[in-house]
């Protein structure tokens, strides 16, 4: 088993979402994560608030997020256990943020500290 990070990219919900919409997202996200933990493949995860986000550039200039011209940026990630990247991709396909046009989930293997990887 490898561990993979599923990194969600989407727009800041503040300007687009109604309370009812946020509650729908909440339910869908919980259902998604519950289905992964039901297979004993959920490791952990967190949301990354858009509020007060900053970017520090190479010249140490600090800017506020969002981040350049892209509206979709990292809003959170979860870590899952999977036998292969294909399996992790299948889990990612269930992610509710994919309902939004332009949104994406990046699947990345987490490096192990076993000296081989």
């Amino acid at each position: 088993m490898e561990e993979y990070a599923l990194i969600m990219r989407h727009e800041d919900g503040l300007k687009v979402a109604s309370p009812e919409q946020i509650q729908t997202w909440m339910k869908q996200t919980m259902d998604w994560i519950n289905s992964i933990s039901a297979q004993n493949k959920f490791v952990g995860g967190t949301g990354l608030p858009f509020a007060d986000a900053k970017v520090v550039w190479h010249n140490k200039v600090v800017t506020n997020g969002p981040f350049g011209d892209i509206k979709e940026t990292i809003g959170g990630f979860i870590m899952v256990k999977a036998g292969s990247v294909e399996e992790a991709v299948e889990l990612a396909k269930g992610c509710p943020v994919l309902q939004g046009e332009g949104n994406s989930v990046e699947v990345r293997k987490i490096a192990k500290g076993d000296g081989i990887h």
């Binding site: 309370p19 909440m26 979860i78």
Partner: peptide, 17 residues
């Protein structure tokens, strides 16, 4: 309005996990 919406987004960033 923003404070109310941000409150629910905060919940969305924490509760599912």
């Amino acid at each position: 309005e923003d404070i109310a919406s941000e409150t629910f987004l905060s919940a969305l960033e924490i509760w599912p996990y």
